[in-house]
């Protein structure tokens, strides 16, 4: 299994072809709304590199420290970030972590992780094409989440640095709190349009600012 490093498939083809975010269709369909006093600011962090790591915490922690310089989050439902906040690792389950890095880095990351891990029994999957990140900010962002997500988003239950997988309307979401005012939602590609339109509708009463 360690020898696969030689024949890894680089999912970014040569020649820089045009790429579109999972939400490009939604942007065409929905008129961009920009209220003057928007209570909710919705943005997309499109085309980031998403990698799912599975395996034993100890071996993965060593490899990830070496490659990314961040340790695996030790506690359940937490997110570790590097100093710039661009790279993050989130606890998903006792043997599963979600790594998000700037777009284009994911293949190199996968390769160097495989080299570092050698024969260790782990799984590294590049899921960049399967999900996208939405950010929700503004004074009323928490109200929107309160009527959307079944998890308690009050600051005492959801401090900054926490991240959970939970129900988002009729879909699922990986919800992370990046700062006092900003939330990140990792949604599936196939549900991206649904989530986007849900957020537009749910935020309508507060006024919404989209890009």
């Amino acid at each position: 299994m360690s020898n696969v490093s030689a024949k890894q498939f680089d999912t970014v083809p040569a020649g820089n072809p045009a790429v579109e975010s999972p939400l490009c269709w939604s942007y065409q369909q929905q008129k961009t709304a920009n209220s003057a006093n928007a209570g909710v600011v919705l943005r997309e962090k499109a085309l980031l590199g998403h990698v799912v790591l599975r395996g034993g915490a100890i071996v993965l922690d060593e490899a990830v420290r070496q490659v990314l310089g961040i340790s695996l989050p030790a506690k359940p439902n937490t997110v570790e970030r590097d100093e710039a906040g661009e790279r993050s690792i989130q606890w998903i389950s006792p043997d599963e972590w979600l790594v998000i890095v700037p777009g284009g880095e994911e293949c190199a990351l996968e390769r160097s992780l495989r080299e570092t891990l050698g024969d260790a029994h782990v799984s590294i999957v590049n899921v960049s094409g399967g999900q996208t990140v939405l950010t929700l900010a503004g004074d009323n962002a928490r109200e929107v989440l309160m009527k959307t997500v079944s998890f308690d988003v009050h600051p005492h239950a959801f401090p900054v640095g926490k991240g959970v997988t939970t129900i988002f309307a009729k879909a699922t979401v990986v919800l992370r709190r990046t700062s006092e005012t900003e939330w990140e939602l990792v949604v599936r590609r196939s549900f991206a349009d649904y989530c986007y339109r849900w957020l537009l509708d749910a935020s309508a009463e507060y006024g919404i600012d989209t890009q």
Binding site: P76, N77, S93, P94, S150, F151, V164, T166, I167
Partner: peptide, 11 residues
């Protein structure tokens, strides 16, 4: 027992 917190039954 794995997430070590309470969650709604829906999940």
């Amino acid at each position: 027992p794995y997430c070590q917190e309470y969650r709604e039954e829906e999940e």
